[in-house]
Each structure stands twice: as structure tokens, then as C-alpha cells.
Write a protein that binds this DNA or RNA. Structure first.
Lengths: 155, 155
DNA sequence: GGCACGTTACTCGGATAACAACTGTCCGAGTCAAACCGG
DNA sequence: CCGGTTTGACTCGGACAGTTGTTATCCGAGTAACGTGCC
């Protein structure tokens, strides 16, 4: 999995703590963890395309969350970066085997594919069950100073 | 995920149907689905290193399952090919952030990392719950002719 | 006929290239804010 | 003093290289079977 997923998750989490209405530049978000600004910007663009954050150009521009953190799941962020395709891509090799038909969708009928898909769904279900708000609250409980610290650091 | 996982799974499944004691060459297994022989051989070597199949050199050599299919899980095969590391590799970027410590293992304490790990565990649990024998039986139920067809094709 | 031995063909195993994806970087288009000027 | 205009700097967005991992291939080491010759 791409490393950008980790960056995107932490950046979105940090964005939950900034004043509503304030935008944060890619440079500020990158400086927070000493990440390469331009590349992080690239990941943020993916989040924009997915509708998770909105972007504003010009002075006082930057990124902000597009909707309430309670409605942004980890799956949303992961999908935005990785592009929704499953980890196991069934190539339908059964089609090339003995008795393979061209008019059969082996992604649906191949039992190996089904088993892998079940695992994939379990993974996605777990990710979809966690929202940014959940993690935000958990962090605030564990490290009460984090919201203000983050807010100041990104201001 | 590597494409070799699909090949390995189907090859292992096919191996469950050959006469016990008979070895199948990489060429036979590759010909079954018209796969590149040399590259498939490479994947099979990974299965050997993982102790899932055993290999024999020379005439009448080849590969055979190392143990009963009931004790080979899909996770075993996937891990053998992909190498047990988690899909989400936590780079511990919190260490570079404000208040980051060098003596803290953020793979354990970072809540984002924990959430991703939970999803990874759900995925692994699902894979570990399915054995080769399960799929073998399901296929035999769905396509009764498969065992003999496969046995003849690999002989 | 049975056994030992050399030969031979066959198989895996690791070392070696071609390709693609991820990672990292740069510069241009668009935009908003501020400064400036005129009324 | 106030409004409109120009300027300017700032920000995102997409186009351009470097590096790592996956895909594909080849050839050599080892081995078991086979044929041959000898007892």
C-alpha cells in the first residue's frame, strides 16, 4: 500500500482540529511532519477529487475538510489514495484453463476469487466502521493538549 | 498485491487433486493455465521456502503439497508469496511531528496505526479461516468432474 | 539373470534483464488580498 | 475619506525525472532413471 495513505490520514486528522472556515496550505501540513511538500500536495489533490477535502487557491488559500469528520471514514481516505480496486485482482486465469469459457465472469464464479473477496470485504468493513471523528476523540482523550497544539502549529 | 498469489492459490488447489506421492513439474502446472513457466517456478520456490510444498529434482521430480490441505490456509499461501508484512506499513511520521519522541514505538501507540492494524487483522482472520480443503470440497460440489479432469491434465 | 557403474536427460534454483508503479520535483494557471490612485 | 483599479504574491494543479518493486527470462547444479557391461 502506498505511503501516501498514512500521510493523508494524519493530515485529515489534523484538519479536524483547525478552526472551521480556516484553510491550511500544503506547506503547513507538510511541515508538520517534515514531509516533501510537493508530493503531499499530490496526495491532497486525490482527496479533493474524492470529495473529502476542498481546496482554495490564492492568498489565505489551502485545504479544509469537505464535511463533518463523523461522516469521513478511514475507508474513504484509503480509497481516495489507493483507488477503490481490490487488493487481490482476479485475472480470471480459469478462462485459460481446461473447460474455460469466454462468456463466464470468473470474478463471480471462481471460488478462489470469492474467498479472497470475502477477506477484502472484511478489511473494508473494518475501515468503514472507523470515522475520523472516532480517532479524533480517542486522541483527545489520550493526549488532551493535541487540539490546541495542532491548531497553533498549523496557524 | 502480486499476481503470483492467484497463480499460487490455483496451483496449490490443483495439487490437492493429484495422486498422493506423485510430483508435478512447474511446466505442467504452468501449462494448465498457459502461464510463463519460469516465473511460476519462482513463485513455487517461495511456497517451498514457506514449507507449503516440497520439491524434488531430476526425472519424475516436481512439486507436491507438504501437508494435508486441511492444514493449509489461504493466509499461509498469501503470506508465502507476499511476505508477511502488513499492507499498511506505519512509517511512524508522528516521530517527526511536534512532541515526537525517539524512544516511543508509534506502531503501537499511534491510533491511526492501530486502526489500520485492526483492519489488517480482520483481513488475515478471514484468510486464515479458509483452508485449501474447504475450497477443494466446494469446487468438487460445484463441478464434480474437476478432480479427474485435473488429475489427467497434470499426469 | 543380477548387480554395479557410467551416461543422459530432466528438474529445480538462483542469478540476470525488462517493465511498471511509486516516490519525489518543478513550473505554470488561476485567484485573492492588498496597495495605490483618483474622486 | 471612500471606491475602483492595478499590481503582486500566493496557492493549487498538472506535467516531468529518479528510484524501488514486480514481472519475465535464462542457464547452471544436482538428481534420479536408464542403458550398458561385467560377474
Amino acid at each position: 500500500m502506498s505511503e501516501g495513505v498514512e500521510w493523508a490520514l494524519h493530515c485529515c486528522l489534523n484538519l479536524t482540529w483547525v478552526e472551521s472556515g480556516e484553510a491550511v496550505t500544503a506547506a503547513k501540513l507538510a511541515g508538520f511532519y517534515q514531509l516533501p511538500t510537493a508530493y503531499l500536495n499530490r496526495q491532497l489533490q486525490a482527496l479533493v477529487r474524492a470529495g473529502i477535502v476542498t481546496s482554495t487557491s490564492g492568498p489565505r488559500g489551502g485545504f479544509r475538510l469537505a464535511r463533518d469528520p463523523r461522516h469521513i471514514t478511514l475507508l474513504d481516505v484509503v480509497t481516495a489514495i489507493e483507488g477503490g480496486q481490490e487488493a487481490f485482482r482476479c485475472q480470471e486465469i480459469l478462462r485459460k484453463g481446461p473447460g474455460g469459457r469466454d462468456d463466464v465472469d470468473y470474478r463471480k464464479h471462481c471460488l478462489v476469487s470469492q474467498a479472497m473477496r470475502r477477506a477484502d470485504l472484511a478489511w473494508r468493513r473494518e475501515l468503514a466502521a472507523q470515522t475520523l471523528a472516532d480517532i479524533k476523540l480517542a486522541v483527545e482523550d489520550k493526549r488532551p493538549g493535541t487540539p490546541e497544539l495542532t491548531r497553533n502549529r498549523l496557524a
